[in-house]
Design a protein around this nucleic acid. Sequence first.
DNA 1: CTAAAGAAGTTGAATTCTGAACCAATGGAT
DNA 2: ATCCATTGGTTCAGAATTCAACTTCTTTAG
Lengths: 158, 158
Amino acid sequence: METENGTNWLNDEEQRAWRAHLDVSRLLMHQLERDLQPFGLTNNDYEILVNLSESEDHRMRMSDLAAATLQSKSRLSHQITRMETTGLVRRENCESDRRGLYAVLTDRGWETMREVAPHHVASVRQHFIDLLGTQGINALYGSLAPVADHLRTRRKIG
Amino acid sequence: METENGTNWLNDEEQRAWRAHLDVSRLLMHQLERDLQPFGLTNNDYEILVNLSESEDHRMRMSDLAAATLQSKSRLSHQITRMETTGLVRRENCESDRRGLYAVLTDRGWETMREVAPHHVASVRQHFIDLLGTQGINALYGSLAPVADHLRTRRKIG
DNA sequence: CTAAAGAAGTTGAATTCTGAACCAATGGAT
DNA sequence: ATCCATTGGTTCAGAATTCAACTTCTTTAG
């Protein structure tokens, strides 16, 4: 199973699965980005909007939002500043913790969300979901969920 | 199946599969990047090295390399410039087409590759492959390969 | 109560990435 | 031969990202 130097290299099946995952993840992000461009949004913009839209009072603490979107506090801070200048979002103080800030969806942000979401979903369907089929979807989830868990716990630690 | 505004939203299974894919792809890239850091390489550096290592004469045309690694010519050009200054790679003219350039692995690049590859493979195993199991791997490939094809052809066109 | 440690966010500089404009060489057409 | 559309690659400017330093507030421990 191992070559003489002791490394457990990937076999052909492993290799092609790994490359498929890699390729899909990059190509897909690219395609989604392209499909959002006409609306003047990036993937990152959109994900922020989704998270805020689904949250109580259309607001989230910066830290939680950073964690939910898997980006650094710094990156999120810049991102929110940009979105503030485009009027999709505003910052608001948190009185229970005076260090804290909320990112809050503006009316304009909410409107944008309602307009763009259907197109985005269509895009996700066209380029991903609808190509999988029901059993493909469940197979995918079954395979990937444990990996996601592993990586999330690893993240907390590291 | 559709809500009143005509949008075919994702159901729960679809949603969770989609999020799993999204999360895994981001978390995994992050983890691999971390595991490469001790060797002073980024994921992008590593992928260039792999491609050149596996190529005839340890060299590839810039265009082909860009296509193989799914990045723009511009980005690759910058990337190679950086790797040239760190001595992993060098540019070399192509006499069959005087516009063309090869990116060529240096001895140092090859050495680096041989040293780092085992660690990288271990990392890919630990955080991905070994969590899937044989059937998970094949299920994943079965699901993702058509998606990859779809996206690649879409890329050529767009 | 106070000091130290930790959490929430921001900032700024350095790096990387993107997209358009650009130059040079090639491959067909006519 | 000569145009002209393409291809291969770089460059520049602007945007996004990272990384470390920093401020402010909160929590914990003594």
